[in-house]
Measured scan of single mutants.
Amino acid sequence: TTITITINGEELRIRGDHEEIHKILKAWEEDHNDEEIVRLIRELAER
């Protein structure tokens, strides 16, 4: 699965399995701050 998210003008492409993507979207849905979401995404992007 690949998704693209733009946060603060920075486009981040994430490839991951369903569970990893779900974790990010769940954090977003629960209204975590952008920095935390960006950190989760970067961790995935670095793999």
Rank of each mutant, 00 (worst) to 15 (best):
A45S: 05
W28F: 07
L12I: 05
I41F: 04
T2K: 04
N33H: 12
L25F: 12
E29D: 08
H18Q: 09
I7H: 02
A45V: 09
D34V: 13
V38L: 15
I5L: 12
E36T: 09
T1V: 14
D31V: 05
D17H: 10
A27K: 12
R47M: 14
E10K: 15
K26H: 06
I21D: 01
I41E: 00
T1Y: 15
I24W: 06
R39T: 05
D17T: 14
E11P: 12
D34W: 13
W28L: 11
G9E: 02
R15K: 06
R47W: 09
N33Y: 14
I24F: 05
N8A: 08
I5K: 00
R39Q: 06
D34F: 14
T6G: 02
E43K: 13
A45T: 05
E46N: 09
L25I: 06
D31Q: 10
E10A: 13
E19L: 10
I37M: 08
K23H: 06
N33G: 10
T6S: 08
K23G: 06
T4P: 01
I37F: 12
T4W: 13
I14S: 00
V38S: 05
I7F: 08
I37E: 00
E20F: 13
A45Y: 07
E30H: 12
H32W: 08
D31I: 05
I5D: 00
I24V: 05
T2H: 12
R15F: 14
R13E: 05
K23N: 07
V38I: 13
E19P: 07
E29Y: 12
T2R: 05
D31G: 13
I41N: 00
E36N: 12
G16A: 09
W28D: 00
K26E: 04
E19D: 12
E35I: 11
I37P: 00
N33M: 14
E36S: 08
E11N: 13
E10C: 15
E35W: 11
I14Y: 03
E11C: 14
A45K: 04
I3K: 04
I24G: 00
I5P: 00
L40C: 04
D34Y: 12
I3A: 06
G16F: 05
R47C: 10
E43W: 15
A45E: 06
I14F: 08
N33C: 09
G9H: 04
D34I: 13
G9W: 04
R42T: 04
V38A: 05
R39K: 09
D34R: 09
R47E: 09
L25P: 00
I21F: 04
E36L: 09
H32V: 09
R42W: 07
I7N: 01
L40D: 01
E20R: 03
I7R: 01
D31A: 09
T1H: 14
K23F: 10
A27N: 04
I41Y: 02
T2N: 05
E35L: 11
R13D: 03
T4V: 13
R13W: 14
E19C: 06
V38N: 04
H32R: 14
I24Y: 04
R15Y: 11
E46G: 06
G9C: 02
I37G: 01
I7T: 01
H22D: 08
H32A: 11
A45Q: 06
I21V: 09
V38T: 07
E46M: 14
K26C: 04
A45R: 05
D34H: 06
G9A: 03
N8D: 09
I24Q: 02
E20T: 11
I7S: 01
L40V: 06
I7P: 00
I41C: 02
I24T: 02
T4R: 09
G9P: 00
E36D: 10
L25A: 03
I41P: 00
I24H: 01
I3L: 13
T4F: 13
R39M: 05
G9L: 02
N33E: 09
E36K: 08
D34L: 13
T1I: 14
T1L: 14
E36M: 09
D17F: 13
I37C: 03
E10S: 11
L12F: 15
I5A: 01
E36F: 12
E36H: 12
I21N: 01
E35H: 07
A45M: 09
D17I: 05
N8V: 03
E20A: 08
I37V: 11
R42M: 08
K23D: 04
I3H: 06
E30N: 13
R47S: 13
R47N: 13
E20I: 08
G16T: 05
L40P: 00
A45W: 10
N33K: 05
L44M: 10
I3F: 10
E43T: 10
I21R: 01
T1A: 11
G9Q: 03
H22E: 08
L44A: 04
L40H: 03
E10D: 05
E29H: 12
L25R: 05
E36R: 12
D17W: 10
E46C: 14
L40Y: 04
E19F: 13
E35V: 12
L40S: 03
K26G: 03
E11T: 15
I7L: 07
R15S: 08
A45F: 09
H18I: 12
H18K: 10
N33D: 10
N33P: 05
R39Y: 04
R39L: 07
T2G: 04
E36I: 08
R15I: 11
N8E: 06
D31M: 12
N33S: 08
E11Q: 15
E19N: 09
R47Y: 12
E29I: 13
T4S: 08
E30T: 13
R42Q: 06
E10L: 14
W28M: 07
K23Q: 09
H32T: 08
I3Y: 07
I3D: 01
L40M: 10
H22G: 06
R47I: 14
E19K: 11
L12H: 05
A27M: 15
L40A: 05
E20M: 10
E29K: 14
R13I: 11
I3R: 08
A27W: 11
E43D: 06
R15T: 08
R13F: 11
I37Q: 01
A27G: 05
L44W: 14
D17G: 07
E43M: 15
E36P: 02
V38K: 10
I7G: 00
L44F: 07
T1C: 11
I21M: 10
H32M: 13
D17L: 08
E43A: 09
A27Y: 06
I5M: 04
T2Q: 08
T4A: 06
G9S: 03
D31W: 10
R47L: 14
R13Y: 09
H22A: 13
V38P: 03
G9N: 05
H32L: 08
H32I: 08
I3W: 08
E10I: 15
N33L: 14
N33Q: 07
R13M: 11
